[in-house]
Design a protein around this nucleic acid. Structure first.
Lengths: 129, 129
DNA sequence: ATAGCTGCAAAATGTTTGCGCGAAA
DNA sequence: TTTCGCGCAAACATTTTGCAGCTAT
């Protein structure tokens, strides 16, 4: 894979993000600073960087567009149903769940994705008054 | 909500399905038998029936389009990574996981969606040949 | 030199919407 | 009869693709 300026810019944008941005969000940020970089290039590079394991594709249920994450280790996401903010979370007992699924269904090589939904502390405060 | 023929046809199609079809799949099935029913009507009714709790929107991670389920109770889904088949699965310890997330993050009213991925028994056989 | 990458525009995909007509209550 | 839902087509949102020229190796 070639090391182009465009690819570096896309990678940097994801590495500096902490909000689990959508592809389109990343494009917007990049486009503001580098208007000559095309949407296709951003999307292509996001996919390639994901394939090479340098960034992660956060698969969100629902059709609201997928997101990208600078963290590549296994962790879950917790979405605030009020403000949409997404925070990271370590998993409880990931192996046990996969094991359980495997035994119960006969499927092999089982893995999973869990997304949590709730109300974040900030939004809890706002709701009180 | 009015009880139209179209809405009944859409509901029947979902209730008879066992493959967790996408909206477009449901439209295809209906369109084959009732060519006069429009795509917009199918989509609108799927959304309305979901809102009323008569069917369920199965939120799949990834951007492969969301699916609909005749079952409205809480259960997980297991997707075969080879053939794409989706089967239902009861959850291991759903309450414990939500409790854990709540304590760990301070979010309230926590719920979650888990999707499992694996290789189904049929595809395991095929791979051995 | 020559793959591989880019920008552009168009296509593909999946879903929603505006509007005038028709049907359920 | 009046309101809600339908069919149609167009709009929309997001992502992918074909292609001709450019660039990193």
């Amino acid at each position: 894979m070639r090391n182009t300026k465009q690819r570096q810019i896309v990678l940097d944008a994801v590495m500096q993000s902490r909000t689990h941005p959508k592809a389109e969000d990343i494009y917007s940020v990049i486009h503001a600073e580098h208007p000559h970089i095309s949407r296709a290039t951003v999307y292509r590079n996001l996919n390639q960087l994901t394939e090479m394991g340098q960034i992660r594709h956060v698969m969100m249920p629902g059709s609201s567009g997928n997101r990208f994450d600078w963290r590549t280790d296994h962790h879950s996401h917790l979405v605030c149903v009020e403000c949409g903010r997404i925070c990271d979370m370590e998993e409880h007992a990931p192996m046990a769940d996969d094991q359980y699924a495997q035994e119960k269904t006969g499927y092999s090589h089982v893995s999973h994705v869990t997304v949590y939904y709730g109300t974040c502390p900030d939004c809890q405060k706002k709701q009180k008054h």
